[in-house]
Simulated scan of single mutants.
Amino acid sequence: MVIEEIKDRSISANLDSSQIKNIRLYVQGAIYCWCKNCKDDKDEPTWFSASSLFGGANYNWEGTPLYDLYKWHKSNNANDPVNMAGQDIGHLLRDVLKTDKRKFNTRKGYTREYRWDGNS
């Protein structure tokens, strides 16, 4: 559950429900892994964003459910399929966090970031 109310957004890729379900499960696994393993020097949870979970060194989505988003945008001639798939991941990340039983804080910068409250 995200403590601060944020605007709902839907993804632009037209994927079937099983693909979306697999992506959401993959995203939730990444969130749980981050919360367990990424702590600051005081052992507190650190901030994360879609790009910290799935961008940078984690850019290669081939073989993961996220690749379906990229393929959809590429096959539908998006000007920048990587960026469009990344935006969809951000929207799905937000949806997953809103339904999670744990509580997350949020802050808006260049990208929206989230942090588990560490107690829930």
Score class of each variant (00 low, 15 high):
M1A: 09
V2A: 02
V2F: 04
I3M: 04
E4N: 05
E5H: 00
K7E: 10
S10R: 09
I11Y: 06
A13W: 10
N14R: 15
L15G: 15
L15H: 07
D16M: 04
Q19S: 15
Q19L: 14
K21R: 13
N22T: 10
N22V: 07
N22Q: 14
I23E: 12
I23T: 09
I23S: 14
L25W: 10
V27Y: 08
V27Q: 10
V27M: 11
V27H: 05
Q28G: 05
G29I: 11
C33D: 13
W34R: 06
C35T: 10
C35E: 12
K36I: 07
C38H: 07
C38M: 03
C38L: 06
K39D: 07
D40V: 11
E44Q: 15
P45K: 06
T46Y: 03
F48V: 04
A50C: 12
S51R: 00
S52Q: 03
L53K: 06
L53W: 07
G56A: 03
A57K: 05
N58Y: 08
Y59H: 08
N60S: 08
N60T: 04
W61K: 05
E62T: 09
E62Y: 12
T64R: 06
T64M: 09
Y67Q: 13
K71P: 08
W72G: 10
W72C: 00
H73I: 02
K74A: 11
A78W: 10
N79R: 10
D80N: 11
D80Y: 09
D80T: 05
D80I: 08
P81N: 05
P81K: 08
V82E: 06
V82N: 05
N83M: 02
A85E: 08
G86L: 01
Q87R: 01
D88Y: 12
I89C: 13
I89A: 10
G90H: 08
G90I: 06
G90Y: 06
H91F: 15
L92T: 13
L93C: 11
L93A: 05
L93V: 07
R94H: 15
R94S: 15
R94W: 12
D95H: 04
V96F: 06
L97W: 07
T99A: 13
K101F: 12
F104C: 02
F104T: 00
K108R: 05
G109R: 01
Y110Q: 05
T111S: 03
T111H: 01
R112T: 04
Y114R: 01
Y114T: 15
R115E: 03
R115F: 01
N119D: 12
N119K: 11
S120P: 13
S120L: 15
